[in-house]
Design a protein around this nucleic acid. Structure first.
Lengths: 170, 170
DNA sequence: GCCAATTGGTCGGATATAAAACTATCCGAT
DNA sequence: ATCGGATAGTTTTATATCCGACCAATTGGC
C-alpha cells in the first residue's frame, strides 16, 4: 500500500511548490473517462491552485502547508497537535517536523502545561503573527485571482459543494 | 524553498492512501479566513476524495496515481513519458519509478522505437487492460458516491469550474 | 558533415506525507 | 494505590513528489 499525493494531496500539502509544468490540459491527449471524473479534476485544480499560491507567496520562505498551520494556530491559540492535524487534514506524525521547523524559526510557541504534560499548547509568537499577516495578504491576492476565474456568482456555490464533499466523504 | 503536495498537492495523486483521519471539519475549531478560501477547500476536498477512492480500490493493490497513468496510457497508446507526465500533471522525473513498477508488474510495455531512440512508446499489456477495467469499475463506484453528494444538476458546472481553474492558473 | 541547441529520460538531493510501532502521560475501575 | 486502557507526540519506514543536474539521441544552422 502506498501514499497519495497529496494531494494532494494534496492541495497544498505534499505537493511541491513548482512553477513549471503541470496545469493545463494537454492538446491531442485523450483523457478518456478521466475527463469526466471529479476526483481527477479536483486533484488537477488543487495542484494548479497550490502552484499559483506558491508563486504568489514567492520570496516569503514559507510553504502553503505551513501557512495553513499558522492560520489555524493563530485562530485557535492553545490548540494541540492532534487537533491541529485533523483540522488541517493531515496525519499527526506529519506535524512533528513541520512544527519543529516553525518553532526553530521562532514563529510559534509550544508550551507543555502542567495540567496535561502529554500535549502541547500551540500559539503564535509576535513574529509568527507578523508572518501570518504577510502571508494572509499573499493569500488574499491569490484568492482574488481565483475569484476572477470562478466568478463571484459561483464562488459560494463552489465552496458549499467542496465542503459537502469533505463532510460526506470523511 | 520546499515542495508541495501533492496534491493535492495533490493532491493525489501525490497523497497517500490513508483511510484514517482527515476529512470532515473539526468541531469547535475556528478556521478563520481559511473557511472562505477556495485553495484550502480544494485541498481538503481533494484529500477526502483521494482517500475515499483509495478505500474503494481497497484490496486492488494499485494507487490512484498509478490508475491515472494506466488510463492515460490505455487511451493514448504510444504516448511518451514526457507527454504523459504533463497530461497527468506531474513532473517527468516522477514517472521513472512509477513506470518501472508498472513495467515490473507486466501491466505496461515500454518500447524503444528505431524512429527516435530517446523516447519510449508506452502501451498496456493485456494484464494492464484487465487491471484498468477493474479499476475503472472502482472509480465508477467512487464517482457515483460523488454524484450523490454533488448532485447530478451541479456536477457539469463543477467540472467546468475546476477545468477553468486548471486552464487559467496553468 | 559538424557542432550547438533541443528534447527525452534518469539520477541525486530534499521535502511532504502516511502508517505502524513506540514512549510518556493520564484516567478510571477495582 | 495500582493496573489496564486511552491519549499525545515522536520515531521509523516507505512512498510520492519536485527540482536541478546529468546523459543520450536528435535536429538545425552553417
Amino acid at each position: 500500500m502506498t501514499q497519495s499525493p497529496p494531494l494532494g494531496r494534496a492541495l497544498n500539502g505534499a505537493q511541491g511548490r513548482s512553477r513549471k509544468g503541470a496545469g493545463a490540459r494537454i492538446e491531442g491527449i485523450d483523457y478518456g473517462p478521466l475527463a469526466k471524473w471529479l476526483g481527477f479534476h479536483l486533484r488537477m485544480a488543487q495542484i494548479a491552485s497550490f502552484q499559483a499560491f506558491a508563486a504568489e507567496v514567492g520570496e516569503v520562505d514559507l510553504s502553503p502547508g505551513r501557512f495553513a498551520l499558522l492560520t489555524l494556530i493563530g485562530r485557535n491559540p492553545g490548540i494541540s497537535q492532534t487537533v491541529l492535524s485533523r483540522a488541517a487534514g493531515r496525519d499527526k506524525s506529519t506535524l512533528t517536523p513541520a512544527l519543529r521547523d516553525l518553532r526553530k524559526r521562532e514563529l510559534i510557541l509550544c508550551q507543555r502545561l502542567a495540567r496535561d504534560r502529554r500535549s502541547y499548547h500551540l500559539s503564535l509568537t509576535p513574529a509568527g503573527q507578523a508572518m501570518l499577516r504577510r502571508l494572509t495578504q499573499c493569500a488574499a491576492r491569490h484568492e482574488h485571482k481565483l475569484d476572477r476565474i470562478v466568478g463571484a456568482r459561483d464562488r459560494p456555490k463552489l465552496l458549499r459543494v467542496l465542503n459537502k464533499i469533505v463532510a460526506e466523504l470523511g
